[in-house]
């Protein structure tokens, strides 16, 4: 796998989009922290951008890249390389490059300007978020052979997680305003990796006091050390499940 990974990694790192993504993230993070006198506020602004761009770039770039790697995959499959390894190498390569772009772009300014604990939390969670959406991209691109359909699907999924899911949650809040649905909603929000990441960071930023009872419930479930372990396990599952499904499908795919 290492041998395949080498070629994948070299190819991606030369990719102009990844470089541009890194530079844009870096430009934004540095400007946010140097314009805001208050680091906490800078973190909140950065959080907004990260929640938007990291999933979008990760899923879109990966989907397109996998479709463009069809030839590469075909070429390798006729040689003595395990399919598992090709797919895993592609996944590792894409994940590594997305994570590297995120850490170089956003992680370094975070470490410099933000509180160390929050910086570490945001770096780990943001990296996981990148990998999650790479994994989802793998699922999208294996589901359909048609590149246009695959890209469409990945944009739909991004839109769902970034926007529609929250809309749904808000809708539930209003529909069931008279019922004690806090716990259910908290459980529900764990179903969206973007929301889970956002709330984890917010809790660390002390905004939990403003979240009233729901915040308290969330703090109870996710705020403790075990809660943090639990949340990161959930995030890790978001990586493992889509990727393993895609791997299974890839192993059975005719090329």
């Amino acid at each position: 796998m290492i041998r395949v990974l080498k070629y994948v990694a070299i190819d991606i790192l030369k990719n102009k989009i990844v470089i541009a993504y890194t530079i844009i993230l870096a430009l934004f993070s540095w400007s946010v922290f140097s314009l805001e006198d208050n680091a906490a506020k800078g973190i909140l602004s950065l959080l907004n951008v990260i929640l938007l761009t990291v999933p979008l770039v990760s899923i879109l770039f990966s989907t397109i890249y996998i479709y463009n790697s069809n030839e590469f995959i075909e070429l390798l499959v006729s040689h003595p390389v395990k399919r598992n390894k090709i797919w895993t190498a592609l996944f590792t390569g894409l994940s590594l490059s997305m994570v590297a772009a995120y850490i170089i772009g956003a992680g370094i300014p975070l470490l410099i300007f933000a509180d160390f604990n929050i910086a570490i939390l945001m770096i780990t969670a943001g990296s996981l978020l990148s990998v999650i959406f790479v994994a989802v991209a793998f699922l999208c691109s294996i589901i359909t052979r048609d590149k246009a359909k695959g890209i469409g699907l990945s944009i739909m999924l991004w839109l769902y997680f970034a926007l529609l899911f929250d809309g749904l949650v808000l809708f539930l809040f209003f529909q069931f305003a008279d019922y004690p649905i806090e716990k259910i909603v908290v459980a529900l929000s764990a179903l969206s990796p973007i929301d889970l990441f956002r709330i984890l960071v917010l809790l660390k930023l002390d905004v939990s006091a403003m979240m009233g009872f729901t915040g308290a419930v969330f703090q109870d479930i996710f705020g403790s050390t075990w809660g943090l372990v639990f949340s990161f396990t959930l995030l890790a599952l978001w990586v493992a499940i889509p990727f393993l499904i895609s791997l299974r499908m890839f192993n059975r795919k005719d090329l």
Binding site: D11, S69, S78, H79, P80, V81
Partner: peptide, 14 residues
């Protein structure tokens, strides 16, 4: 597949 040399009908390369 170490023992096979393969030349595809239409070679598709990166």
């Amino acid at each position: 597949r170490n023992e096979i040399g393969y030349m595809p009908q239409i070679g598709r390369y990166p």
